[in-house]
Design a protein around this nucleic acid. Structure first.
Lengths: 154, 154
DNA sequence: TAAAATAGAACTATATAAGTCCTGTATTTT
DNA sequence: AAAATACAGGACTTATATAGTTCTATTTTA
């Protein structure tokens, strides 16, 4: 199974929360985001840092600091989010990392190139907005267990 | 990073070996395949069983038994191979498995649907033949370390 | 009937991901 | 200027999934 890390799903939940308020102009502290999403705070903090390093979020320090989107949700693709959280999108370990020791006789190198390209194209065609438009039919009547993805549209 | 299991890459190597001889009519025993691909035999055996269960290979038991492709390499897609080795193609755990306990309020359920569809489409458009056409420029001058993907076109 | 080859399951070890915690740095308010 | 607030980054622990191995049963041909 091709799996993305749980963090990537959390990241979408977090980004969706930030994209909701005032056309993306919302600015929230890590603790607020954790509270709103019901995700554990240390985990949220870690994800926010990754998203900031990748340039999807901007951060401000100090007393009234927090995080906010750097661009509109329409401009944030699934490929952007996955890349931020998990590194380059590639089905194999070495297919895209430059320091490949087996360079020249590693059969993986060329083999998966077309597939990786196809995947990247597919993931670039879906944006954060697309992910947000899907609302859950029945809102959760009770609190989700800790550790579960917990973004339920109310 | 979105990763496929190493087994899936091995599977491609094995299938490529079987697709080479006589327009796919080759029939080889597990031990032969292990020898030709330089992959550990128990691992090869395991992969062959998975591919057989999935219907990509057929097997015959007994003294002159072995494995062979059930259809032409052009008809075997990357999606087929990945599904055979790693189960349904889905970026999340529950998005496609029927027994989802959180059914109804699991936010993942709808969220990744479009993305999964895009991925499956992309993977269905690449066939085993496409993967085989990529040959390595310099053949390996020495044996690859055990555990590395070791299919080098000679 | 003996040898060769696949089928399938159970088990162990290892690598990766997830989660937590600690220390440091920047900014704002009092 | 000092204190409080909030982000930055790294180290560490634990849990889980993957990879790999081994053993037993079944099937087929010589």
């Amino acid at each position: 199974m091709i799996k993305l890390s749980r963090f990537t799903d959390y990241a979408v939940v977090i980004l969706a929360e930030l994209a909701r308020g005032e056309a993306g102009r919302l600015r929230l502290a890590a603790s607020d985001i954790a509270a709103r999403t019901n995700l554990p705070e240390p985990t949220v903090a870690k994800i926010l840092k990754s998203l900031t390093r990748a340039g999807i979020l901007s951060s401000t320090r100090g007393v009234n600091g927090g995080y906010g989107l750097t661009r509109m949700a329409e401009k944030i693709t699934v490929a952007d989010i996955i890349t931020a959280m998990d590194g380059p999108i590639s089905l194999t370990d070495c297919a895209d990392s430059s320091p490949c020791v087996l360079e020249g006789h590693c059969s993986m190198h060329g083999r998966w190139g077309k597939v990786n390209f196809a995947i990247r194209t597919a993931l670039s065609s879906v944006t954060l907005v697309d992910l947000m438009q899907v609302s859950v039919r029945k809102p959760s009547p009770f609190a989700l267990p800790a550790g579960e993805s917990a973004a339920v549209e109310e």
